[in-house]
């Protein structure tokens, strides 16, 4: 059974149909990439899955539970974390406070402390800057904070929206290394990226989106050798 199963999802912004009936699945342990150009609907899909947007029709199931109509703040507690586009860290709060908000739905203090230690080990820079306001961090550090914050909820699946956007090439490589590590530690990853090359390098499978439709789905290695994908997304 798929961990996350989306069936015939349709999402509207007012009268404009942004998502035109898409279906996809993410299995336990996979890294799945959603690739596509600006405006293809990638972010809309993530927002709908985590409850920030409500679909017109269709079904979203997480570990067999129908979460289509569940409010966003309840979905986190089921084990789904979302690293939003543009990072959206709380700029006026400290790094530590941001991380603790990631663990908002968890009750056990010892477990939270343990996860915090794990996050600090993975991102030593966040530990160095734990008392600093998040707004004073560089873009790459904010991306790390957004990822650390998501990990604080101890998610089964983590949804990442354009983690490489606006970052220097060094940071981009670092962020993708971290995604690989997160996946290796057993967390399932659903990755949305404009940087299709990087995304396909670490993904198991990928879905290609064009103006609200999935036009192709295959293993990442297959897509990397697909001529039309090469031409449209990989710049070859």
């Amino acid at each position: 059974m798929a961990m996350l199963k989306v069936t015939d999802l349709k999402v509207y912004y007012g009268v404009i149909q942004a998502i035109k009936g898409i279906s996809f699945e993410v299995n336990q342990g996979e890294v799945i990439a959603l690739i596509g150009a600006n405006g293809a609907g990638k972010t809309t899909i993530l927002h709908t899955v985590t409850g920030l947007l409500k679909p017109k029709s269709g079904k979203i199931e997480f570990e067999g539970t129908d979460i289509t109509k569940m409010p966003g703040h309840k979905i986190v507690a089921l084990g789904m974390a979302h690293v939003p586009e543009g990072r959206r860290v709380f700029a006026d709060l400290t790094v530590y406070e941001n991380l603790m908000l990631g663990a908002y739905t968890r009750k056990n203090k010892d477990e939270i402390a343990e996860t915090l230690q794990m996050v600090y080990t993975r991102f030593p820079r966040l530990q160095e800057r734990k008392t600093q306001l998040a707004g004073t961090l560089s873009g790459g550090e904010q991306q790390m904070l957004a990822m650390g914050r998501a990990l604080m909820s101890h998610p089964k699946i983590i949804l990442m929206d354009e983690p490489s956007m606006g970052l220097s090439p060094i940071f981009v490589n670092e962020i993708f290394d971290i995604i690989k590590q997160v996946s290796a530690s057993g967390t399932t990853v659903l990755l949305v990226e404009q940087n299709a090359k990087k995304a396909l390098e670490i993904a198991d499978r990928a879905y290609v989106l064009e103006t609200g439709n999935i036009v192709k789905s295959a293993s990442a290695s297959e897509l990397m050798n697909d001529d039309s994908i090469k031409k449209a997304y990989l710049g070859e």
Binding site: T50, G51, L52, P71, G72, H73, K74, V76, A77, A81, H82, P84, R88, V89, F90, A91, D92, L93, L101, G102, Y104, T105, R149, S153
Partner: peptide, 11 residues
């Protein structure tokens, strides 16, 4: 600061 992001934290 950010209603949507807060919602994503489970608030």
């Amino acid at each position: 600061e950010d209603r949507g992001a807060a919602e994503l934290m489970g608030i």
